[in-house]
Every structure is written in C-alpha cells, then in structure tokens.
Design a protein around this nucleic acid. Structure first.
Length: 932
RNA sequence: GGGCCGGUAGUUCAGCUGGUAUGAACGCCUGACUUGCACUCAGGAGGUCUGGGGUUCAAAUCCCCACCGGUCCA
C-alpha cells in the first residue's frame, strides 16, 4: 500500500503564489506547507507532541461561533462560491449495503455518484452532514472532544468528469483558505497544510490536513484512485472530498476548554451539575486541555500511558489527575453518547443484538455504565435525552417528532440491561462462592465466557468478587484475546461456497427487455433466442419471466421451441441479462422464435404476496411506530413473510390490528402505481423510507406506491389494485432476533385455506375433548388441572402401595424370599410382568427406611425386557455391599448393562428368559460381599 | 452475517463423565412461639425437567429438529 505520494502532487500554484514553502516536521517527520518563517513544526497537537493547543482562551477567529452559527457560516460561504446547498442525509446509511452509518459527507454520494452511475444532486455542492463514528468511542471524552461519536462534517464536493472539470486541488485549497481567513478571520500565516495520504472505502488519493493553532480543522481529500488488492487504479471521476470539522471549528472560535463546551454550552453545564461536578477547576481543565492532543487511545496506547504524559506536562501526580479528570471525561462522553443515541433512535434504529441495532445497544449500555460511575440515577438518562432532543430539534426537526418512541425504546433497553446485570451478578456470586469454598483462583477462561456469552464485563466480576473477598486478575490483553477468539471462529465459519459457474461472458450480451415491467399481467409472449449457454441456459431478447430478486422467487412455466415444450425451472438475472434455466438441455439455432408461457397461478400468487408485503409493512408502521423498517422478506405462494424491526414481542392485539389495517386497504381498492425515476428525484420526493428492502443499485429507481399507504423502491411485480388480493391473514409471528419480528401471512384463497386448516384443527380437538369449540379454553384449563391432580395422586398411590408392599414383606408373607446373613437381610422380590420402576424404587426405599441392615433385590421381566434393582441400606453398605458392582456384573447376563451407586443401582436387558440366572448370580455376589 | 450460552418447583438456580428430582434458597400454605427490624421453630403443598424425534435395559443428562430466551463480534 502506498504511504506517500510524490511531492509534486502537493505543489499547488496557490502555495507558490502566496509564499508557502514545503517543510518537514522535525518531530513527526511529516511534510507541511506554511507561510511564515516561524512555523518550525507541523503545528499539530499530535501524540508525538509537535505542538499543543494555543487557541484555548485565545481564539484566532474574529468572533465566537456556536455550532449552528458555524454551520451556517460554512454553508452560506460556499453558496456564495456557486455551490448548491444540499440537505443533510440520514445518519443511518440505508442506501448502502456495505456500511451501517454515515461517517462522512462523501458517504452520501458513494458509490453511485463517485462511480459515475448517477449524477450528483448538484455540482459543486456543499453540505453539513451529521456523522457517526463509533470507532472513536473510547477516545470520546479523554481527547476533550477532538474525537466524538457524533459530529457534523462540512463538505464541499466537486465531481470532475473526463469531459467536465469543475475544480480540483488548487481551487479547493483556495476556497478553504478564503473561508478560514476572510470569513473566520484567521491570520493567513496561522493556517498550516500538512501533506497526507487518504485511503478509505476502497478509494484513495492525496490529501492535505489543515491545522490552526494545534487543531486539525479540515481535511481536503483528492479522491482519484480505486484500491484493489492494495494497488491503485485511476478513477474516471476525480472527486473533491472535503471534511470540515464544524464542531472543532466552533471549538476553535470559542477557545473554551473542550469541544463539548463549544457544542453543548448550557446543556453541558446542566449535565455537570446533574453529575454533581459543580466545582471544576477551570484553570486546571484548560492546562490539561492544552495537552490533550497527546491523548489517543487505540490498540497500541492505553488511557494510562497517555494520561502519564499529560500529568508530566501539567505537573500533577498521575493518580491525582486521574481522580479529577475521570468524572469530567465521563460527563463529556455522556453528553456525546446521548446525542448520538437521540439521532440513531430518531431514525428508527431499534436496539437489538445484531447489525446496527447492536451499535445502539452498545452505546446505550456504555452510557448507562458511565452514569453509574458518576452515581447518577437512571432517571437522569431520560432527562438528558429529553434535553438533547429539545436542543437538536432546533436544527433537526424530525428528532422531536420521535421523542416518545426514543424514550420508549430506552425504557425497554434499560429493563433488558437491568435483567442482564441481575443475572450476571447471580452468576458471578455463585462462581465466587464455589471458588471461595475450594480456595482456587478465578479462572481466566471463565472471564471470557462470562463476557462473551453473558455480557458480564471483567470489571464487574472483579468488583463483585472483591466484595466477597476473592481476588480477580484481569489480564491486560483481555479484550484483545476476545477479539482473537472471534477471529478464529470467523475463519472456521468462513466456508465460502464456490459456485463453479460456467464462464459466460454475460457483459457481451445485449440486455434483456423486461416485459413484466411494462405490464405485470403478461402471461404469454414471443421472443427470439439470442444465446444458449451450456445447453441449459437460454438468453432471450425479451422476457416476461420474472427472475428471482427482492425476495420474490423466480417464475416458472415453459417455452415452446420448434413446437416442443420446454420447462423453465429457474430464472436468474446476471447484470442486465435474464438467464432461463431449462429442464434437460437443448440444441437450437440462435434467432429461433419461441413462445413463452408463464405458470400464471404461481406468478399471480406471488404478485399478491408482494403487494401484501407492502401493505403489511405500512400497517405495521402505523400500528407500532415509525421505527418499523423492513428487515427482510420472502414471498411465497402459500405463505409470505416479512421481518420488521420492533423493540418488543407483538401482542395478539397488535397482530390483529395490523391485519385489520391491511384488509381495510384491500377494501379501499387502492391503485398500486409503479414508476421509474431518477434516484435523486425519488429520494427528494419520498425520502429514505424508500429503501425498505435495503440498498437498491442503479441510476434509476423503480418506485412502487400504494396510495398514501406505502412507498418503496422495489423491483417486484405488483397487482394493479389492492382489491385483487381479496383478503389477507397473518398466520404466524416469531422473533428471529432481539428487535426483529417475523410476520407470516397469506392472501386470497390461500389465506382462507390457512384459516380452514386451523379451524379443522380446532374441530378435531373439540371432537377429541368432546367439548364445543367456544368452550375449548375452559375445557383445556380443566383438563390440565385434572391431569396435574391425577399425576400427584398417582405418585401418592405409588408411595402408598410401596408402603403396603414393604409391610407385606415385613409381615413375612413372602418371608421365604428373605434371607439373613450376618445380620443383613436380603429381600428378594419378583415383580413379574408388572415392571414399574417407580413402584419398585419406592418400595425398596420404604423397606430400607424400616431397617437399614437390608439389601433389596427386586426384579421383573416381561416379554421384551428384564429389570434388576438393588438397593442397600446404610448398614448394609458399611458391611461391604456395593449395589453398583452387583448390577454391573449381573446385567450382561440378561443382555444389557446397568449401574448406579453403592447404595442404589439398576440395570436391565433384553433377554428376560435369563432373569433367574442373573438373580441367582446376584445373590451369590451379595452373599460374598457380606462374607468378606 | 458469524460465534457462544441457556430453557428443571411460583422465582433464582444446582443436578447434565446417562442409573432414586431424599434437589437448594427465596416465595406459598398450616401450626407453635412471638406481637418492630429479611423474626424464629415445626410441618406441608408445589415438577409430563420447553416440545418432538433418535440412541439405550435406562435420558433432565448423549445426538438431531423445532420453539423460546440471553450474549459477544462484524
């Protein structure tokens, strides 16, 4: 991988004109451009210590800007420079398959714009994009706001096409410089440009980082390469990708101790006072802030090492600084995380244990722990979230609309987390108690298991163990070892299916004309054969066969080729070409005209299913809330399913409501309209709700709209009108993941069939129970009650029987079977064909209870099996009886095995005819045991 | 998308190298002693060991499937 570009790449006319010169930082060794002769180092407050922040209490700007003022200054400046202002995109990147969250402004335009598939919404453009970067989560706080999990990136972007140049490196830097100096009023010689290389998201290019008074405030990236296997390939479109840290710029202009002070102002003060941190030594805070650039927590450097450096410079003992700073940093993090959560949840992320939902859960749990560490009550969480909602609604109105849902989801999360903690505590206590009893140390593998499988952090284990006086050592590489564990399992699980596909040069074939998009109701069509691949894949110039896609299975049917019927067994789309897989193989000339006929019953059922999916989705959103998104779907002829995000199990009421809503739409006879339109238009008309089925590729998007009920980007075939569906019935629901509910449903006659099936079942049960259907619930309750009573009575009876049985034995009716040797009674009893092990055991128990100097030798045999049971009282065991040994030795005679303990053992076998022989042998062994 | 853990009394769990659920604690019921702090003591009730298959003489325990839940990572 390239780690530097030639110096030429950075030698811009602007630098030469303005008297900038290229220098090398003696501290970090990197090259930079600066104007004045005074600038010796790169001027950035790095972990190498090239500089510290000199803007604190001493901002270089003409005035102080709040974040929203800074945003406006940035946007309007670039508007004046002929950039079009674009509305921010969501923080959840639903239009992309490769990532969950928007972590830079350029994300909005990848991959379609940067790859040249779709034109940009404007060119050049300017945007202020809220971004989420959870990779920086451990730095959020300790770096005083240089890192944030949520921040706003100002970006002015230009997309340069081979035939249309907008602007490139030189102008980009000129714009930047103009903004910093003319608008913000920073002195020109205070702006330092550092050379660097930017690689990310499969793209790369040179970039310059802009440093002012120690703080990096912007990165200007010149994206011009695609990275494939560590090699760079020139892209046809060169993209100006700039990122201005609007939060950092606000910080710079205010000169306050931290970026959090700059962003949140009064809100931060309130959180501080909620955390009982009213008396903060501002002087100390500022002097720590000056050196906070030294701190960066990553895999190589931990919090303590960074803190040590700061402590040295501030001149305080490490532990004292640690004690003062930790609560402050935690409060910073709380301010940041609660904002991040508000944004995430407002866009319908449901906390769960998979995908983006997991990120929300992780963020929640981290914040919750931070609150605990500050001894803040959980109610504070809600208060702060509400404060955040109000604070940000001024600029992002949609957040306020979702406030109730946000609070509800946090409530559910809190309950879940409390449960986890409670369970965890119990688990730890049990382990610790056991360790204490055995005086062993806490095993490390237990620590990993607790964390990995039960979500219990080693810190929590340590705390609880310490309370109980057991020492726990957390290995320093604990989290690394967990990561390692996952790497290993990942390797094992990665058994990629290599589909040995024949090498078809699909790209060279003309794209298939898709008749089903012109009219979804075409059942028969004429087409020409363009190609036959491998003898069994037909390529036609046009087709009405729908290829598998968007959760809709492929059509089936047949083709008439030279009057011969050929069955279509699968249809797939590769690129723009539809492949028809046929049964068997065929030899046919190219250009032959064929007649295609669809299996219409199947297709029509799938159309109903597909439209039904949109209805259910719309209904679920109305019943459950706006956080509901489609998480996946599979259409079927008899049952179709949709997975939706929701934070709770669906109640029967909710299911019925969804069902009712969907049926009301059917009765309302709503037209289903499909339209193809440009991505930009579709997004601006309907918003990102479109992407229910995930990211959709391509320049143009097919939009399926069911009145006001539902709008989705969808490539499937749909009914013309909802009335054709007839009827819809939800037949099952299940929870496939925490936060994801699956709904299964059928339409039309199939729905009726499903109901009839269930009704049939009801009738059958009613017949069996001899109870009318409407009384079945009561009958069932009664029956279960009775069954329980019968069971317990049965147990009682067995006990009673056992008592009687033992009494009989004692009375001597069967005394001939009892034998006394050295004071030990051997009671032999044949239960014959009535082998009831429980009765045998209970009877033996009773006998032993009466006289511990007894050995019970019970047995029974029916046609199939034989059983032997030996039980010895305490006295008998002391005399040397070992029931287990006896049964073990004897059971093979009856063709089986057996075992147990010294006082009790049972065995059996499949040769009942040999039972007498076995018992004889058993007696011999027992007698021998007593003799010895 | 991948991995790990679990489902046993009303509750939290033990038992799981197959062999009696004498299961434990808390809760519940009855009685005694007390009448104020998790009172104490004596006794008792309470289980189709999530469901369905399989292996076995024998399955809560081993194997497979389904359902329900927990958790870590991308």
């Amino acid at each position: 991988m390239l780690n530097s570009f030639p110096a030429e790449e950075y030698k811009l006319p602007f630098f030469i004109e303005e008297g900038f010169s290229r220098r090398r930082c003696p501290s970090c060794g990197e090259y930079f451009w600066a104007q004045g002769s005074e600038q010796e180092t790169c001027g950035e407050s790095t972990s190498d210590g090239c500089a510290c922040y000199s803007f604190l209490n001493n901002p270089p700007t003409l005035k102080r800007y709040s974040l929203s003022e800074m945003r406006e200054a940035f946007l309007s400046f670039f508007e004046k420079q002929n950039h079009t202002r674009i509305k921010p995109y969501p923080v959840v990147a639903r239009w992309r398959e490769d990532i969950y969250l928007t972590h830079a402004s350029i994300i909005d335009f990848q991959p379609y714009v940067t790859d040249g598939i779709v034109p940009p919404p404007a060119n050049p453009l300017v945007i202020a994009q809220p971004c989420i970067r959870l990779v920086d989560i451990s730095n959020t706080g300790p770096t005083f706001g240089r890192h944030l999990t949520i921040f706003e990136m100002g970006g002015h972007h230009a997309f340069n096409y081979p035939d249309k140049e907008v602007y490139w490196k030189d102008n980009t830097v000129r714009y930047h410089h103009k903004f910093m100096t003319e608008i913000l009023g920073v002195k020109s010689e205070e702006v330092v440009y550092k050379e660097s290389v930017w690689v990310g998201g499969g793209n790369a290019g040179p970039d310059v980082e802009c440093i002012i008074r120690g703080l990096e405030v912007a990165t200007l990236v010149f994206m011009q390469y695609k990275v494939v296997n560590s090699k760079f390939f020139k892209l046809p479109i060169r993209t100006v990708d700039t990122g201005y840290g609007l939060d950092r710029l606000a910080w710079l202009s205010q000169g306050v101790p931290s970026c959090f002070h700059a962003i949140y102002g009064n809100l931060l003060d309130k959180i501080f006072s909620m955390a009982n941190l009213d008396k903060i030594d501002d002087k100390l805070l500022l002097s720590v802030a000056r050196h906070s650039g030294l701190v960066t927590i990553d895999k190589n450097a931990n919090r303590l090492i960074a803190r040590k450096k700061v402590a040295e410079r501030v001149g305080l003992p490490l532990n004292k600084l640690e004690k003062i700073l930790t609560p402050i940093e935690n409060t910073f993090a709380i301010a940041d995380h609660t904002k991040c959560l508000s944004f995430l949840l407002s866009e319908g992320i449901v906390p769960s244990n998979i995908k983006e939902g997991y990120l929300a859960r992780m963020l929640f749990r981290r914040t919750y722990r931070l609150l605990q560490s500050l001894k803040m009550e959980p109610e504070m969480f809600y208060k702060i979230i509400s404060m955040q909602v109000d604070f940000w609604s001024k600029d992002y109105a949609h957040i306020k609309k979702r406030e109730d849902e946000i609070i509800e989801m946090i409530k559910v999360e809190e309950e879940k987390f409390k449960d986890t903690i409670k369970r965890g505590r119990g688990k730890i206590e049990r382990i610790v108690d056991e360790i204490k009893d055995n005086k062993r140390s806490f095993p490390n593998n237990k620590l990993s298991e607790l964390y990995d499988s039960h979500g219990i952090t080693p810190e929590m284990v340590k705390k609880i163990a310490n309370e109980k006086g057991v020492k726990v050592e957390i290995p320093t590489d604990f989290y690394a070892s967990i990561a390692n564990r996952h790497l290993q399992t990942e390797k094992l699980g990665k058994e990629e299916k290599i589909l040995a596909k024949e090498k078809i040069k699909i790209d060279e074939l003309p794209s298939t004309d898709l008749l089903y998009y012109d009219d979804a109701y075409i059942r028969e069509f004429e087409a020409k054969i363009l190609n036959v691949i491998n003898g069994n894949y037909l390529v036609l110039n046009r087709t009405a066969f729908y290829p598998e896609g968007g959760g809709q299975p492929a059509d089936s049917g047949f083709l008439l080729v030279n009057k011969k019927k050929i069955d279509i067994i699968d249809v797939q789309k590769k690129g723009n070409v539809v492949l028809h897989e046929i049964k068997g193989s065929i030899e046919v000339e190219k250009g032959t005209v064929v007649h295609g006929v669809l299996d219409w019953d199947k297709r029509y059922a799938l159309m109903r299913a597909h439209t039904a999916t949109h209805l259910i989705n719309g209904a679920a959103r109305r019943v459950l809330g706006d956080h509901v998104w489609q998480h996946g779907a599979q259409k079927g002829v008899s049952v179709t399913r949709i997975d939706i995000t929701h934070y709770r199990r669906l109640s029967p009421d909710e299911i019925h409501k969804i069902e009712t809503f969907a049926n009301q739409v059917i009765l309302a006879e709503i037209e289903v309209e499909t339209a193809s339109m440009s991505r930009n238009k579709a997004e601006s008309l309907y918003g990102f709700r479109l992407y229910q089925g995930g990211a959709v590729p391509g320049k143009d998007i097919r939009v399926v709209r069911t009145g006001d009920w539902d709008v989705e980007a969808c490539g499937g075939t749909h009914l013309k009108n909802t009335r054709e569906m007839g009827f819809i019935k939800i037949v099952y629901t299940e929870r496939i993941q925490d936060g994801v509910e699956r709904l299964g449903y059928s339409t039309g006659l199939q729905a009726l069939a499903n109901i009839q099936k269930n009704e049939g079942l009801l009738w059958k049960v009613s017949e069996i129970l001899e109870s009318p259907v409407d009384k079945l619930d009561k009958t069932a309750v009664k029956l279960v009650k009775e069954l329980k009573r019968a069971n317990s009575q049965n147990r009682k009876l067995i006990k009673e029987l056992a008592t009687k049985e033992s009494a009989t034995l004692k009375q001597g009716k069967l005394v001939q079977l009892a034998k006394k040797i050295k004071g030990i009674r051997i009671i032999e009893r044949d239960f014959e064909k009535k082998i009831n092990l429980e009765l045998m055991v209970q009877t033996a128990n009773e006998i032993i209870k009466q006289n511990e100097a007894t050995v019970a030798l019970f047995f029974g045999a029916n046609k199939k099996t034989a059983n032997i049971l030996v039980m010895a009282g305490k006295v008998a065991v002391k005399k040397g009886i070992n029931a287990c040994f006896v049964v073990n030795k004897v059971s093979p005679i009856i063709g089986g095995g057996g075992g147990g303990r010294a006082n009790f053992a049972q065995g059996g076998g499949t040769k009942p005819e040999k039972i007498r022989e076995a018992i004889q042998k058993a007696k011999e062994i027992i007698e021998k045991q007593i003799q010895e």
